[in-house]
Design a protein around this nucleic acid. Structure first.
Length: 641
RNA sequence: GCCGGAAUAGCUCAGCUCGGUAGAGCAGCGCAUUCGUAAUGCGUUGGUCGGAGGUUCGAAUCCUCUUUCCGGCACCA
């Protein structure tokens, strides 16, 4: 006599074991139709699951986040079924749910074409319309291995062979298609209401580039047509904020074939870059950093001593000049140690914070280049803090505060913290890594921050904390980092004399707030959709005259603004005012000052924002003061005017 | 680096399937217009089709190689 407790607290009793679907039907026919899965005692199960004991039950529908996952997972199976029907020789592998959708990897002797994709999707729609029942069966491991081998599914057999012998293996079947799966799945293929295949791409078996390349088909699936359309709409909008597109439209930068992975900054883009650099320089100076500049081209032996040559030698731009091997620096730290090493350091000098807007070059794999986000030539807001082991935690805490202030100036308040620990390939003893990892974890805990652990993701010379931000459309960007390094100072012979006149090796903290300027600006372009806050905007104010009669006055307005160091230009072209407004709005100039005879007579300006808001006329002096206030607030200003 | 796709005027794109020496809109330039808050009208310049080979009487269109970009995968000190 199972007694089922529902989420609202009510109970229902059944004379004998009962399926989730039957309970749903008992509650109401609408719910029965909507039921995709059940949550029995907190565990997600199929609607066919029989409950034979007292339990809590929640009926999972498409409105449930879990319900949507079930739909997506089942849609991956639907995809696999369609592929197997159209291409019987293709082998199935894995097909997980991902954000907004799913994918399925197949092994096949040729690649799937876009036309194949259309055919597969069409077949999926037919299979969904047929509402084929989905059934679950269980098998022992060896039996399951034999079953899939019999079908010629070697990859599946390999997956199952790795599952422990005593674990129950479940199979899901729909039509003539059977797949290994943990489930749960929708009761029939008719419950997958809205989906679309999005792309095909290669993907390595088990994510290892040493393995065969499979073909991955991506798709998206939703609870209904409306949600699917909304998703596609969001994708289209995200494309509109692509920094490569905006970079060209707003005339910020370009890239070209002769310099792959390098950026040509245009005047407007360079304003943004130099404004950020100027701001960072000021912030660092005010926070105990001393700026330095080190060489680009350094003898290869330094990279051998630092350990970079071993791990990254092939990825460095190396060159042979007059029998001597050099490399363009891929990072700044070995050079910073050279600066540290000049003269004998005392413990009184520590912590020593050396900062550099260091220009680095790395020969990134060709396939990884992406606009100005992933490039081969870039500049970091890099700094290295040389300190004693006792000072590490305090310096990390101090850095976290520093970083919070900077992010807030760019309008970001929410930071995500992750601690990356020792990777397989590394330098330094385990004991040293233990200490370094503990120091970072303690610093985070002392600040009462919530953080996430990323085992094995650390740099080769030390563990690190990574700081990420969420942009205006919810994407997460890893920007800042602080890495503890006990190894490099030793390798490069850094020392200081302690209070007892003993020579000691300092600890080195590698840190960056923005990461690379290129990537950071790329992210900002997408975050702001090109509408930079006024302190960063390439052009802050455009002065537009109505007719030639106000040309001279427009010139005076611009001069007054420029005298106060604002970036202002006038637009005296013989065009209608609507035309000029449209052009500057599209260029995302924050403020448009319209000057006609009225304004000229009263020495005022009519202010319009790029959002289309009319702020009315104000005296020129008043506007200058008001604008200064907006600029000083930086990204902390409330958006818009 | 691996898999797939793309590369045509400054920009966005058509033409390529069925080979016969390129076309649109915007931008630019010229002229007219001096007109108050997202596109004034008319006229006009401009490309040999990413690069190198090949097939062909003839190639932007077909084939090969190559470069770069795009989407993934892998990588990311």
């Amino acid at each position: 006599m199972p007694r089922i407790t529902l989420p609202d607290g009510s109970c229902r009793e059944f004379p004998g074991p009962v399926a989730v679907a039957a309970v749903a039907a008992d509650i109401g026919s609408g719910l029965a139709k909507a039921a995709l899965a059940g949550r029995v005692d907190g565990r997600l199960v199929d609607t066919s699951q029989i409950i034979d004991h007292d339990a809590t039950l929640e009926i999972v529908t498409a409105r449930d986040a879990d319900g949507l996952e079930v739909i997506r997972h089942s849609c991956a199976h639907l995809l696999a079924q369609a592929v197997k029907e159209l291409f019987p020789e293709a082998q199935v592998t894995i097909g997980p749910v991902i954000e907004d959708g799913f994918y399925y990897d197949f092994a096949y002797h040729r690649t799937f074409t876009p036309e194949d994709l259309d055919a597969i999707e069409a077949r999926m729609h037919e299979l969904a319309a047929a509402a084929l029942p989905v059934s679950r069966t269980e098998m022992g491991r060896d039996e399951a291995v034999a079953f899939f081998r019999g079908l010629g599914e070697e990859y599946k057999a390999e997956i199952i062979a790795a599952i422990p012998q005593d674990e129950v293996i479940s199979l899901y079947s729909q039509g003539h298609f059977t797949d290994l799966c943990r489930g749960p799945h929708v009761p029939d293929t008719g419950r997958i209401p809205a989906f679309k295949l999005t792309k095909v791409a290669g993907a390595y078996w088990r994510g290892d580039s040493a393995n065969a390349m499979l073909q991955r088909i991506y798709g998206t699936a939703w609870a209904n047509r409306k949600d699917l359309d909304a998703y596609l709409q969001r994708q289209a909008e995200a494309e509109q904020r692509d920094h490569r597109k905006l970079g060209r439209r707003l005339d910020l930068f370009h890239v070209q074939e002769e310099a792959p992975g390098m950026v040509f900054w245009h005047p407007r883009g360079w304003v943004i870059y130099t404004e950020i650099e100027r701001y960072m320089r000021e912030m660092q100076r005010a926070n105990g950093y001393r700026e330095i500049r080190t060489p680009q081209l350094v003898d290869f032996s330094l990279w051998q001593r630092s350990g970079h040559a071993d791990k990254f030698g092939k990825d460095m731009f190396a060159l042979q000049i007059d029998e001597r091997a050099f490399a363009i620096k891929p990072m700044n730290c070995p050079c910073h140690v050279q600066v540290y090493n000049q003269g004998l350091r005392s413990y009184r000098d520590l912590p020593l914070r050396l900062a550099e807007f260091g220009s680095c070059h790395r020969n990134e794999p060709s396939g990884s280049l992406h606009g100005i986000m992933r490039v081969r030539g870039f500049t970091q807001d890099d700094a290295h803090i040389f300190c004693t082991e006792d000072q590490v935690q305090g310096e990390v805490a101090r850095f976290i505060d520093f970083l919070h202030r900077i992010y807030a100036d760019f309008g970001f308040d929410e930071v995500i913290y992750r601690l990356s620990t020792r990777p397989e390939q590394r330098v330094g003893s385990d004991e040293v890594w233990d200490r370094a990892e503990r120091a970072l974890a303690d610093a985070l805990d002392a600040q009462r921050l919530q953080w996430e652990l990323l085992p094995g993701e650390g740099a080769f010379s030390g563990p690190k904390i990574e700081f990420s931000l969420k942009d205006s459309i919810g994407r997460v960007w890893q920007l800042g980092t602080i890495q503890v390094d006990f190894s490099m100072p030793e390798r490069l012979g850094a020392q200081y004399v302690d209070a007892d006149d003993q020579r000691r090796v300092p600890v080195m903290l590698h840190r960056a707030v923005l990461g690379s300027f290129e990537r950071f600006i790329g992210m900002l372009i997408e975050h702001y959709e090109g509408a930079f806050p006024v302190w960063l905007a390439p052009l802050q104010v455009a002065v537009l005259n109505i007719t030639d009669g106000q040309a001279e006055y427009a010139g005076e307005v611009v001069e007054a603004l420029q005298n106060k160091s604002f970036r202002a230009e006038n637009d005296l072209r013989n065009e209608k005012i609507g035309f000029k407004i449209r052009e500057h709005t599209l260029l995302k100039t924050p403020y448009l000052l319209i000057v006609g005879d009225r304004e000229k007579a009263s020495r005022s300006v009519a202010v319009r924002t790029r959002e289309g808001e009319d702020l009315g006329a104000m005296p020129l002096d008043g506007f200058i003061e008001w604008l200064g206030d907006r600029v000083r607030r930086r990204g902390r200003a409330i958006s818009g005017n």
